[in-house]
Simulated assay, not measured.
Amino acid sequence: MKKSTLKLQYNAPVTLSIFFLSLFALLLGQATSGWTTTQLFSVYRASPLDPLFYVRLFGHVLGHAGWEHFLNNMLLLLVVGPPLEEKYGSRTLLTGIAITALVTGILQCVLFPGSALLGASGIVFMLIMLSSLAGMRNGAIPLTLVLVAALYLGQQIYDIVFVQDNVANFMHIAGGVCGTVFGFAVRKR
């Protein structure tokens, strides 16, 4: 008779690594009274001669303003990320995440020079749009993509116009666009 043993499996290395790095960044930010969050895990316009500027261009997706911000992003990341990582592979998913981080970081510096951006929301929305493309067959655009895009864009535009908060809705849209473009690019390969 075979013994059954339960083991934990690091089943989605990119997704889980982002989760643990984000958790570490949040705890480090709390331990340093926000210094590391500002210096490493937020992106804002700075001199290109500052080496940390390039760290922030990618590292901002790991930073979070607090536990609620962290939990909202990580719950979605942990639900959507693993199946996509299984479908597309870890390297491909990491490429999409890095491109989205870079695009949203650059857009933040160019379009909103007086403010900082942090959090994995752009990445999460990239993954949501990418997942809505997962059922694409024979070049036909999945209805799920159309519905998700309409609902998602509608909500983000509504929030931009009518809700006054510190949420970077434009970067959510940018993340969604990155996910859609990346999904079509990966599909063609």
Rank of each mutant, 00 (worst) to 15 (best):
K3G: 00
K7L: 13
K7C: 12
L8G: 02
Q9Y: 08
Y10I: 10
Y10C: 09
N11W: 08
A12S: 11
A12P: 06
P13S: 11
T15K: 00
I18H: 08
L23I: 01
A25N: 00
L28W: 14
G29E: 02
F41H: 01
Y44P: 00
A46V: 04
A46T: 12
L49K: 02
D50N: 15
Y54A: 08
V61L: 14
L62F: 09
L62R: 08
L62E: 02
A65V: 12
W67V: 13
W67E: 06
L71T: 05
V79T: 08
V80R: 06
P82K: 01
P82H: 02
P83S: 10
L84A: 05
E86R: 15
G89S: 07
L93Q: 06
L94S: 14
L102C: 05
L102V: 06
T104V: 14
G105N: 05
L107I: 11
C109V: 14
F112R: 15
L117E: 02
L117K: 03
L118W: 07
F125W: 08
S132G: 07
L133T: 03
M136K: 11
N138I: 10
G139N: 07
T144C: 13
L145S: 04
A150M: 12
Y152S: 15
Y152N: 15
L153R: 12
Q156I: 11
Q156Y: 03
Q156H: 02
D159Y: 00
H172N: 13
G176F: 06
V177K: 02
T180S: 09
V181K: 04
G183A: 04
A185I: 12
V186T: 14
V186G: 05
R189Q: 15
